[in-house]
């Protein structure tokens, strides 16, 4: 009887110690092989060719941990530099994780097409440029080059002491 009680007490102590120590170790949660926490992976595809007034399809694939996932998706587009003039477009879905909308842009110019995505408590908001008309395409090349060159020089961060 005494031996059983001793084993029980020791077991309880070891379990308490294990619980205590597990509270002392670094918590990484669920992370993938690159050490990233679960996040929504998206692939936004715009029509390859589009003329003013013509309809083209925008598609978005959403996945979580590599699997397609049901999400709340709202598409929006606006002329570059005018986010206040955003027009929202409803998203439809036939396959899990794939959303699309028909896009009709009235005139030539550069547009930003964005998808606002929320699923499983996570959110993402990918956006791409779409240029219609030769002048817009040329301007888009300039914009893309400018974005590529925007990367700042290293700020010389480091430990604070």
């Amino acid at each position: 009887m005494k031996k059983k009680r001793w084993i029980g007490t020791t077991g309880a102590l070891l379990l308490s110690l294990a619980a205590l120590l597990s509270g002392c170790t670094a918590q990484t949660g669920t992370v993938d092989e690159q050490g990233l926490r679960p996040h929504l992976a998206v692939d936004l595809q715009l029509p390859a060719e589009l003329a003013p007034g013509e309809s083209g399809q925008v598609t978005l694939d959403v996945a979580l941990l590599g699997d397609p996932i049901t999400a709340e998706v709202i598409f929006a587009y606006w002329p570059e530099g005018e986010p206040g003039n955003a027009v929202e477009a409803a998203a439809s879905s036939e396959d899990k994780g794939r959303y699309q909308t028909d896009l009709v842009l009235p005139e030539e110019g550069i547009y930003v097409v964005r998808a606002q995505v929320a699923a499983d408590g996570l959110e993402v908001m990918p956006a791409k440029w779409l240029a219609i008309g030769e002048d817009a395409v040329r301007q888009l090349a300039v914009l893309e080059a400018a974005q590529a060159q925007e990367a700042p020089a290293a700020g010389g961060g480091g430990h604070h002491h």
Binding site: A127, K128, W129, L130, A131, E134, V137, R138, A141, E144
Partner: peptide, 25 residues
């Protein structure tokens, strides 16, 4: 971006890459 090279004809329309988020976003 193939059409960014001057030797190639500029297309009628083109989709660019992803737009970087702003600091405010």
């Amino acid at each position: 971006i193939p059409w960014a090279a001057e030797q190639l004809p500029v297309p009628e329309s083109a989709a660019g890459g992803y737009v970087k988020l702003t600091v405010d976003e």
